[in-house]
């Protein structure tokens, strides 16, 4: 199988470290910059995916399947988190007619 030997074809695991770090930083920037709460949730999904990418890269590099099981569980948790987060946002929109993230400042009381 040629595809399994990507790390023998010149691509080092450092390439995937840099790639997933860049994706994680973009997710962090998205969480801070955007004020639409749905986009903030999407940026969190992006950060989770960058971690998944790194886990898969190391799993392939060391030939151990355990990290891929962890990626599977991260996907499970992310799906549950997305449903709960979106239903909270629908609730927020119903009360305020907006999904501005600043509205959560009201929780300070």
């Amino acid at each position: 199988m040629i595809l399994g030997t990507i790390f023998e074809s010149g691509i080092s695991v450092q390439f995937y470290i840099v790639l997933s770090t860049i994706l994680f930083a973009i997710g962090v920037i998205g969480v801070i910059v955007r004020r639409n709460a749905i986009i903030v949730l999407m940026s969190i999904e992006l950060m989770l995916n960058s971690v998944n990418l790194l886990l898969v890269a190391f799993s392939t590099y060391f030939g151990q399947g355990d990290a891929q099981i962890f990626v599977f569980f991260i996907m499970v948790v992310a799906a549950a988190e997305a449903t709960i987060g979106l239903s909270i946002l629908v609730l927020l929109y119903r009360n305020n007619r907006s999904v501005d993230i600043e509205l959560f400042n009201k929780l300070k009381g």
Binding site: M1, L3, I6, I38, V56, T60, Q68, A78, A79, L86
Partner: peptide
């Protein structure tokens, strides 16, 4: 990228769970 690293199970699950379920939920909301 997953396919390139021969993680075929995760490639399929990524398409089904993320693009198929989670993102459709986001788009719907």
């Amino acid at each position: 990228n997953y396919v390139l690293m021969n993680a075929q199970f995760l490639a399929i699950v990524n398409i089904i769970v993320y693009t198929g379920a989670v993102m459709v939920l986001f788009l719907f909301v």
